[in-house]
Design a protein around this nucleic acid. Structure first.
Length: 493
RNA sequence: GGCCCGUUCGUCUAGGGGCUAGGACGUCACCCUCUCACGGUGAAAACAGGGGUUCAAUUCCCCUACGGGCUACCA
């Protein structure tokens, strides 16, 4: 028998931003499908009408799109950025499948695997409170579980408000087979008769998601660990309906530095925030893939395609993983340096003063700081002195160590003549500048530090900066000489 | 509270009955060097604790501790 075509899905609810943990879940689902040449779909789970956030679907898709987590099927954006759907298993928006869910619920009732429940919210609330006060486990008491059939019919006919609950076994055990965790056992008697259709007629996650997964031919369910304990209910639905169970994989959580569940309080959890700050999709993907999964442990850099080749469910870790910003930063620097020049420039340009019209100058500055950057925005602080009309030398030391001001003046004046001798258009590059200056230094019998330090500080106005050679090459001859004159003027004042 | 899951350097992890427990980020030192960054070399740094099983346990089993998830007409 040939293996079934692998079909995975990411099924977020459009309640706001895309959580970084969601990105990883989506990534893994995409990776698995890619690896097996299958399909990865995006389904929107919007059955909770009260929690819908306008624009959330667009936002979700846009963020996934930027991260290159593109579904083969399902909800997506057209070329104008408008939400649409494509694929043969639609609709992919869960609320549009309500009729289907209803049909399944009725079948479950007919099989005595589910029942209408007329309990009011108030009664349920009271019930919970009594249970809490008497320190008993909270949960539904089965009040409507065995209502008389006639009575049910009559109340239904009257149009009485109700929900539909699963009629779960009250004894025995269920075993969940999870690829990551192995066999996990639960006692039926500890599990509540779950609501599967709400009084507004919408299905809850438990029915909707299982029904849609089945109808869409999903073979591998990859979701967060928070779903593990409700899996018995899902198995119950699958079995009652006679559906074939998908492979289950419950992913470990992503954690805050204090090991609690990753939360807004302790940093950014929205994927779009990272993108906005200038984290590159490649870095984010590489980083997130390795948070909870690792093919070897000896290698850190993987492209999206390489990940898809190597990915497997079996190597996913069981324990939660702390979101380690430092490593992400390192990765981002790494990918920033790997970027094609044009892309790099496009990223940096917005952070350089738009008033500056010398684009080649700006370009040289962008490349100068390339290996120092974690995020593109950092360049504005790094490069500020390049664009300053005048530098403020009052806060820095222009003379080298215990050398006098007079010596600094002498060195600067001499260095100026060397720079003047350089030709602006011929070989005005770092290497030429460096050899020229160093040769002159040697001929003069001067050590490097006592000249290079004043020169560098004169050019940058800072005690920490790139080398004077790099600064001169970046400024160009005219600007370099002007800076040195500024410093000289300051010293001779 | 109940049920369930988890625990290897600070962090992400590799490994797995016998290893000097490996890599990466971060940290520190040294080299390069006019400073910063890059780069290079090196160092410190871990099997939560207690019982078993075994010739041998970090690895298998049990317990404890700690962390986490679930316990909605939310997903």
């Amino acid at each position: 028998m040939p293996d079934k075509r692998v079909r995975t899905r990411f099924a977020p609810s459009p309640t706001g931003f895309l959580h970084i943990g969601g990105v990883r879940t989506a990534l893994y689902a995409q990776l698995l499908a890619k690896k097996h040449g299958g399909d990865f779909l995006l389904r929107v789970e919007d059955t909770d009408q009260a929690r819908l956030v306008p624009g959330a679907v667009e936002n979700l898709c846009r963020t996934l799109q930027q991260l290159n987590i593109t579904p083969d099927e399902g909800v997506w954006l057209d070329e104008n950025g408008v939400v649409m759907e494509h694929g043969e298993y639609g609709p992919y928006t869960q609320s549009k499948r309500q009729a289907n869910h209803q049909k399944y619920a009725q079948e479950l009732i007919a099989m005595d695997k589910a029942y209408p429940c007329f309990c009011t919210a108030e009664r349920l609330e009271e019930l919970r409170q009594t249970q809490e006060i008497t320190k008993r486990p909270t949960g539904y008491d089965g009040h409507c579980r065995n209502l008389d059939k006639q009575e049910v019919q009559a109340r239904l006919a009257k149009g009485e408000k109700h929900v539909i609950r699963l009629k779960l076994p009250q004894e025995g055990k269920v075993t969940v087979h999870d690829v990551i965790r192995g066999e996990v056992n639960f006692d039926w008697k500890l599990i509540d008769d779950q609501v599967i259709i709400k009084s507004d007629g919408m299905a809850t996650y438990h029915l909707a998601s299982m029904a849609d997964d089945h109808d869409m031919g999903i073979t591998h369910v990859i979701r967060g660990e928070e779903w593990l304990s409700s899996t018995p209910k899902h198995i119950f639905i699958y079995q009652a309906m006679g559906w074939e169970l998908p492979v289950m994989a419950h992913l470990p959580l992503i954690l805050n530095p204090d090991k609690s569940k990753l939360s807004k309080r302790q940093g950014d959890v929205a994927a779009e925030d990272y993108l906005q700050k200038g984290y590159l999709p490649q870095a984010l993907i590489n980083f997130l893939a390795l948070l909870g999964w690792n093919p070897s442990g000896e290698r850190e850099i993987y492209s999206h395609d390489e990940l898809a080749e190597l990915f497997n469910l079996e190597k996913i870790n069981k324990a939660g993983a702390v979101f380690n910003l430092e490593k992400l930063n390192w990765l981002n620097n790494h990918y920033l340096r790997l970027l094609p020049d044009a892309e790099y420039l496009a990223l940096i340009n917005p952070h350089l003063p738009s008033e500056e019209q010398d684009h080649e100058f700006k370009q040289r500055i962008a490349f100068l700081f390339r290996e120092r950057l974690t995020l593109p925005a950092e360049i504005s602080a790094w490069s500020e002195f390049f664009f300053a009309e005048k530098l403020d030398y009052s806060a820095v030391k222009l003379n080298w160590k215990d050398h006098s001001t007079d010596e600094a003046v002498e060195r600067l004046k001499t260095a100026k003549t060397w720079i003047e001798q350089l030709s602006e258009d011929q070989q005005f590059d770092v290497n030429t500048i460096e050899t020229t200056i160093k040769n002159n230094l040697q001929a003069q019998g001067w050590s490097n530090g006592d000249t290079l330090w004043p020169l560098r500080v004169a050019l940058s106005g800072a005690e920490k900066s790139p080398s004077p050679f790099e600064l001169i090459a970046t400024y160009g001859q005219k600007r370099s000489l002007a800076r040195i004159d500024e410093a000289l003027a300051f010293l001779l004042k």
